[in-house]
Measured scan of single mutants.
Amino acid sequence: DEVRLHVNGHTIEFRGIDEEIFKILEEAAKRGADEEELRRLAEKLLR
Protein backbone atom coordinates (compact mmCIF):
# COMPACT_ATOMS: atom_id res chain seq x y z
CA ASP A 1 0.00 0.00 0.00
CA GLU A 2 1.86 3.07 -1.24
CA VAL A 3 0.75 6.67 -1.46
CA ARG A 4 2.46 9.62 -3.08
CA LEU A 5 2.40 13.14 -1.75
CA HIS A 6 3.53 16.01 -3.95
CA VAL A 7 5.45 18.69 -2.04
CA ASN A 8 7.19 21.68 -3.60
CA GLY A 9 7.63 19.91 -6.91
CA HIS A 10 8.90 16.72 -5.27
CA THR A 11 7.08 13.44 -4.90
CA ILE A 12 7.41 11.70 -1.54
CA GLU A 13 6.32 8.07 -1.28
CA PHE A 14 4.95 6.60 1.91
CA ARG A 15 4.19 2.92 2.50
CA GLY A 16 1.62 1.48 4.86
CA ILE A 17 -0.26 4.62 5.82
CA ASP A 18 -4.01 4.97 5.80
CA GLU A 19 -6.09 7.77 4.35
CA GLU A 20 -6.45 9.56 7.70
CA ILE A 21 -2.67 9.81 8.17
CA PHE A 22 -2.26 10.81 4.52
CA LYS A 23 -4.66 13.73 5.03
CA ILE A 24 -2.68 14.91 8.06
CA LEU A 25 0.57 14.75 6.07
CA GLU A 26 -1.06 16.52 3.14
CA GLU A 27 -2.23 19.34 5.41
CA ALA A 28 1.25 19.65 6.96
CA ALA A 29 2.74 19.88 3.46
CA LYS A 30 0.33 22.67 2.57
CA ARG A 31 1.54 24.53 5.65
CA GLY A 32 5.14 24.31 4.46
CA ALA A 33 6.54 21.15 6.05
CA ASP A 34 9.51 19.74 4.15
CA GLU A 35 10.16 16.08 3.36
CA GLU A 36 12.12 15.43 6.55
CA GLU A 37 9.38 16.96 8.72
CA LEU A 38 6.71 14.93 6.92
CA ARG A 39 8.62 11.68 7.42
CA ARG A 40 9.08 12.40 11.15
CA LEU A 41 5.38 13.19 11.45
CA ALA A 42 4.44 9.97 9.64
CA GLU A 43 6.67 7.95 11.98
CA LYS A 44 4.99 9.48 15.04
CA LEU A 45 1.51 8.87 13.66
CA LEU A 46 2.29 5.24 12.82
CA ARG A 47 3.39 4.37 16.37
Rank of each mutant, 00 (worst) to 15 (best):
D1Y: 15
D1G: 13
D1R: 13
E2F: 15
E2P: 13
V3F: 15
V3C: 11
V3E: 04
V3P: 06
L5G: 01
V7H: 03
V7T: 03
V7A: 04
V7N: 02
N8E: 05
N8I: 03
N8Q: 05
N8L: 03
N8K: 05
G9S: 03
G9D: 04
H10G: 06
H10C: 05
H10R: 09
T11H: 07
T11G: 03
T11R: 03
T11C: 07
T11S: 09
T11E: 10
T11V: 14
I12W: 01
I12M: 04
I12P: 01
I12R: 00
E13T: 14
E13C: 15
E13F: 12
E13G: 05
F14W: 03
R15P: 12
R15L: 10
D18E: 06
D18N: 14
D18W: 05
D18T: 14
E19R: 11
E19M: 14
E19S: 13
E20I: 13
E20K: 14
E20C: 10
I21P: 00
I21S: 12
F22T: 04
F22Q: 05
K23G: 07
K23C: 03
I24F: 08
I24G: 01
I24Q: 08
L25A: 00
L25H: 00
E26Y: 14
E27S: 09
E27V: 10
A28M: 10
A28S: 08
A28K: 05
A28H: 11
A29S: 06
A29V: 09
A29C: 05
A29E: 02
K30C: 07
K30D: 05
R31N: 11
R31L: 13
R31A: 11
G32I: 03
G32A: 01
A33Q: 06
A33R: 04
A33P: 01
A33T: 06
A33E: 04
A33I: 09
D34I: 07
D34G: 10
D34Q: 10
D34M: 11
D34S: 13
E35C: 06
E35H: 08
E35L: 10
E35I: 13
E36T: 12
E36G: 13
E37D: 09
E37C: 11
E37N: 08
E37I: 09
L38E: 00
L38M: 03
L38H: 00
L38F: 04
L38V: 09
R39G: 04
R39C: 06
R39K: 07
R39L: 11
R40T: 09
L41Y: 07
A42N: 02
E43T: 14
E43H: 15
E43D: 08
E43R: 15
K44I: 12
K44Y: 15
L45S: 03
L45E: 02
L45R: 02
L45C: 09
L46V: 10
R47V: 09
R47L: 10
R47Q: 10
